[in-house]
Nucleic acid binder design. Structure first.
Lengths: 104, 104
DNA sequence: TGCTTAGATCGGCAATCAACGATATAACGA
DNA sequence: TCGTTATATCGTTGATTGCCGATCTAAGCA
């Protein structure tokens, strides 16, 4: 299995080194726990509005949080109509786990 | 195996979200690669001076880096005479790996 | 073509972090 | 006791991050 290089790792750790962003990653494990939305969250991800509401931050802060997680490769985004849906990147998280276990 | 709670995780990720501190964790996997010292590095850890020299930072910065890693539980320290020796906390790092894989 | 809604980006301010030199403490040897 | 060496802590400055409101862009609908 491929692993993350040092620069990528630092970026990932910075992204996760924030309590709200870390919580968001957990929340996204259960997309069904968010309020209903036009598109099925289980399949295409959770829209920003719902993440913002649960995090209790402003719209701009929520958007920036998700951009940081995305740049770190921890989530993917899919835009459908006016909504941007976010989903965990489980493959990347598995890589992170194995990198931590083997390389750190 | 016991896992880390969210607050501990955030502290660990903050500690590792810095390129030099992340490198130090790798360096400590091979204590024998450091210059010789009075006490055997393989057994009791690497003294701060050697870590400072390899990192290329000031003495105070090196000391603070190691304090941050230690507060995060990633290294342990042992003082013998005038030297403080630092060692990886492999048990903690294993916990981190499994927490990332199972919980994040 | 306007409204309205979702989201991204910009600009700014406060808080935190990074890094250093200076100083303090602790151990040891002359 | 007095240097000397290793390390920790303090105080400061510049850089980065966190977070917001305001603004911009894109989509969808009247």
């Amino acid at each position: 299995m491929s692993e993350l290089n040092e620069d990528d790792l630092v970026q990932v750790f910075k992204a996760l080194g924030h309590p709200t962003r870390l919580s968001i990653m957990s929340w996204l494990k259960d997309p069904g726990s968010f309020p209903p939305q036009e598109q099925p969250a289980e399949e295409i991800g959770v829209c920003l509005k719902h993440i913002q509401a649960r995090a209790g931050v402003s719209q701009s802060t929520a958007s920036q949080f998700m951009a940081i997680l995305q740049r770190a490769g921890l989530v993917t985004s899919r835009r459908i109509g006016p909504w941007t849906h976010y989903q965990r990147n489980d493959e990347r998280i598995r890589q992170l786990g194995s990198t931590v276990a083997n390389t750190i």
